[in-house]
Amino acid sequence: MAINPIQPGLQGQSLASDTKGVDALRYSASKDPKAAIKETAKQFEGLFMQQLMKSMRQATLSSGMLENSGTQMGTELLDTQLAQSLSGRPGGLSEMIAKHLERQLGEPLANMAKDAASAQTVAATGQTGTAPLPAALQGKERQVGFLKLHDSAAKAAEAETGIPATFMVAQAAHESGWGRHEIRNADGSSSFNLFGIKAGKDWTGPTTTVTTTEVVNGQPHKVQARFRAYASYEESFKDYAKLMKDNPRYSKVVAAGNSAQGFAHGLQRAGYATDPEYAKKLTNMINTTLRLQRATA
């Protein structure tokens, strides 16, 4: 009887004492810290329940009949499975542990992000490990962390397209709400799709289907749409750069050069988004990004 370790996207299949389960939990934490906290809390509760049942059995008088190493092992495995099945229920110990951990981690948890391609994580506290943010940027920790996280990928995309890195990282911020509203896969993990690029008929890579808002005849409508999914944020920037460079629809966007307004209006004219206010919103986001970059330079 084997206890399977946690696989990426699958929770609750092993206790923290399982080495493979720990490795998989670390992987899960890098992609979705909040979900990993809940899973860790559940495993703590499972270990507690298992130890509790062990103590209860030791305190119970045994006749010694029909007992051997085989029955003892079976009992221990049964206790392990029972502990797992009893853990993670609403209102239980794991829920209390998870809430406590979330309070302890606070904003750094909410701001944590990961670029899987470079295997680097950034807790978006606005600090690089050397000096805190200046007073003028207090309260902008998430935004500063987002810009730092995607700086190198945006510059690589600039080298490919000629579009300023600031414009592209600003668009990623607009589309994802500074990372708060990333498109997620069915298992809750990030699709790393920062630009809201949909999966058309020619797309052969991974996809995820989510509910999104489209403006039709001036009215917003909720629709189900398929979006591209990537293995990393860097891959998302690379695909965006390829789209801008190779798709004839966006040739004028690339040609807009260093004009923020020209870039934003070019995207809207090319049909990048259905929101009639898209160009205005993106221009404002580019200006905000420029101010943040100047303040942190």
Rank of each mutant, 00 (worst) to 15 (best):
A123R: 03
Y233T: 09
L133F: 11
A225F: 04
A241T: 06
A225K: 10
F44S: 04
K281N: 14
M53A: 10
E214I: 03
A241Y: 10
H181Y: 11
D202R: 13
K114P: 00
V216Y: 00
A36G: 04
G177Q: 10
D18I: 07
Q51S: 07
Q268D: 01
Q84E: 06
G21Y: 13
T125V: 07
D275Y: 11
K155S: 00
S17P: 02
E277M: 08
K20W: 13
T125S: 15
Q127S: 15
K281M: 09
A59M: 14
Q7N: 03
R269P: 09
L10H: 07
A159I: 03
L66W: 08
A241F: 14
L149P: 15
S251V: 12
A136L: 11
P220E: 06
R26K: 14
T211Q: 12
M244H: 13
V215L: 04
S189G: 05
V223R: 04
Y278C: 05
V216L: 03
S28T: 06
M244R: 07
Q84L: 03
M96D: 07
T283L: 12
A170V: 06
K20V: 10
T283E: 12
H150R: 05
A260H: 01
H221M: 04
Q120G: 06
G70F: 11
G266K: 01
R103L: 05
N217C: 00
K155H: 10
L243R: 07
T283N: 12
S118H: 01
L93M: 08
H174P: 02
K34Q: 11
G266R: 00
V253K: 12
G92W: 02
D246K: 08
T288C: 10
S94D: 09
A83C: 05
A116D: 08
M65S: 03
K245H: 11
R291P: 03
S14D: 06
A279G: 11
K155W: 01
P220K: 07
A117W: 15
L93G: 06
Q104S: 07
F192E: 00
M96P: 01
E175M: 02
I183S: 05
I3A: 04
M285F: 10
T71M: 12
K54S: 12
A231Y: 04
S55V: 05
F227Q: 04
G139M: 06
S259G: 15
A172C: 05
N217E: 10
M285V: 05
T161A: 08
S69Q: 12
S191L: 03
K281E: 11
L292E: 08
G218H: 04
E160A: 13
A256M: 08
R249C: 09
A2Q: 09
A131M: 01
S152W: 06
I37E: 04
R291V: 10
T130D: 14
A113E: 11
T60A: 11
T130F: 15
D79E: 10
S85V: 09
D187N: 00
Y278V: 00
V210N: 09
G126H: 07
E67K: 15
G162D: 08
A199E: 05
Y250R: 01
E158T: 13
L292V: 13
Y230D: 01
L78M: 12
D115E: 04
S191M: 03
L47Q: 10
H100E: 04
I6N: 10
Q293G: 08
F48G: 02
A225Y: 06
S251T: 14
A260P: 14
N284S: 14
E277H: 14
A124N: 14
E158W: 15
G162S: 06
